[in-house]
Design a protein around this nucleic acid. Sequence first.
DNA 1: AACATTGTACAGTTTTTACTGTACGTACTT
DNA 2: AAGTACGTACAGTAAAAACTGTACAATGTT
Lengths: 189, 189
Amino acid sequence: MGLYHLDDERQAAVHKIRKRVIENIGRNMDLYGIPVSTGHLYGLLYFADKPMNLDEMGQEMKMSKTSMSTGVRTLLDYKMVNKVWEKGSRKDLYEVEYDWYQSFVDFFDIKWRKSVESNIHVLRKALDETEKLRKAHEDDEELTAVLQEDQAKMREAVAYYKWLERLIDTLVDGEIFNYVPKEPPEGKI
Amino acid sequence: MGLYHLDDERQAAVHKIRKRVIENIGRNMDLYGIPVSTGHLYGLLYFADKPMNLDEMGQEMKMSKTSMSTGVRTLLDYKMVNKVWEKGSRKDLYEVEYDWYQSFVDFFDIKWRKSVESNIHVLRKALDETEKLRKAHEDDEELTAVLQEDQAKMREAVAYYKWLERLIDTLVDGEIFNYVPKEPPEGKI
DNA sequence: AACATTGTACAGTTTTTACTGTACGTACTT
DNA sequence: AAGTACGTACAGTAAAAACTGTACAATGTT
């Protein structure tokens, strides 16, 4: 973590402060459906002042290299960390994506959009089948009533998901920042 | 589910269509950190044409009443279902919140906001401690460099979380729908 | 007051998820 | 080509989460 040139006491003090932040980040990362330990890994990388390799991570996290491998892969899938190329080193190096706004957007673009698309697809298909069934039994008033109810609900659902898609679009194209602007960090310049 | 007056074949056809939708909703519900089975429960309630009690749910889901109880509680916490009062019945009745936009907003207002607040709190505290540590060792250039780096990162993080708070605000106060408007459901009037 | 019904706390079980160690494929080095 | 270093697939183990059955408190009924 690049602070081993400090004397032990001061190093420990820095570590202690970082640790609480890292653990909090890790804990809250379950919002993204990410295991706590992978969240910790993220936190570790967040404070690292240079890209890390799997062995270094394992050492710091006191976990197996295999776990680091899978953890990093998860974070890569979410684009929360990036692979870094460094001449000389044969090891793969990773660093966090420091643009958290981008990470937030990517999360929705990756996970939520997939879910939304799948839901719309299934609903469209169900609407189709419902319509067929309805037409095949137009004389059956009870059935018609049930099917129309279902159709109304499913059309509402599709409308909602399409809204969600548009919302994700405004995130991805950055338009959201016109509505809800970023502000510069507070504190000394 | 209110369709037992239909003949068996047609009833089965309706069930089959609903089932796939329900399962998809359930599966995608893990985005909210909700167990798949609770997602299914939600789907069941979604298609129910009247509020259900725990025994009915257990029967349909082929699961224990205890599980229904905890499942419903989870959904209540997220405001995805509402408790309904019906004179006569001693049993508690529940129905889904059909306003999915509202459910979406509530989810962020409840889960994300809590997380954001906790993160800001921890970061502010860490920034404080960092500042104290820095002032106590102003002669130590190495330490100062490390701490300033950490401070810069944490201030960025706070700025991001404050943005997230404002985003959630626009969801909660409904302003988001001025930017990304709802559209009426498609299909026949 | 005795009895019945309902929801849930809690302990125990099952199922799922996270983690580890080994073994191996790939790619670089000599 | 043999040797070495690296990342990950895979099988097994440990830990966590979901689920069930029983017991009981709260509330309503007779």
